[in-house]
Simulated scan of single mutants.
Amino acid sequence: MPARPATPADAPAIAQIYNEGIEDRIATFETRLRTPDEIRERLNSPQVAQHPALVVEEAGKVLAFAWSAPYSAREVYGGIGDHGVYVARAARGQGHGEAALTALMEAARAAGLHKLTSRVLTGNTASRRLHTRCGFREVGVHQRHAQLDGQWHDVVTVEALL
């Protein structure tokens, strides 16, 4: 499953996949659905040069994506990317997430990043297993990190040195 850089033309598919993750309430604290225009704006951003966005497709259909964003606005943390990886609901459990995350790690390294990090809801066992398979380590648990639908949730911080 080869991955490729995401393009603005991928924005509708990425928005659909991301919105499935929002609706499923297991992958993110976000609750507001995203529009293709918002995704397109991110993909057109100059930050994509250092913080890549990639998609995995099969038969011309985008099934997964992974992207990086700055970990912090502070210059000292410039080599760290905060990432996300999402798989279309109908394509989960088939290796697309691993293909996307592995490709993101390679692209982030090539872009000059030295580490990727993220926070994964503790109950998202599929994402935790994926990150472990891809060489991430679980650093620790942030308790009551944020609320989702009025309920506090813990997250596991994961990181991988590139």
Rank of each mutant, 00 (worst) to 15 (best):
T28K: 10
F29Q: 04
E30H: 06
E30S: 09
E30A: 12
E30I: 01
T31P: 04
R32G: 13
T35A: 15
P36M: 03
I39P: 04
R42C: 10
L43C: 07
N44D: 12
S45E: 12
Q47W: 09
Q50V: 04
H51Q: 10
V55E: 02
E57K: 12
E57C: 14
E58M: 12
A59I: 05
G60S: 07
K61S: 15
V62Q: 07
V62I: 09
A66F: 01
W67Y: 15
P70F: 07
P70C: 10
Y71M: 10
R74K: 06
Y77W: 13
G79E: 12
G79D: 08
D82A: 14
D82C: 13
H83G: 13
Y86I: 07
R89I: 02
A90C: 11
R92W: 09
R92G: 10
Q94G: 10
Q94E: 05
A100G: 09
L101H: 04
E106V: 09
E106I: 08
E106A: 15
A107M: 06
A108Q: 00
R109L: 08
R109F: 03
A110Y: 04
G112H: 05
L113N: 02
L116G: 03
T117H: 14
R119L: 11
V120Q: 01
T132F: 11
C134P: 01
R137V: 04
V139Q: 14
R144T: 03
R144P: 02
A146V: 00
A146N: 01
Q147D: 05
D149S: 14
D149I: 10
G150V: 02
Q151F: 09
W152S: 10
V156Q: 10
T157W: 08
T157F: 12
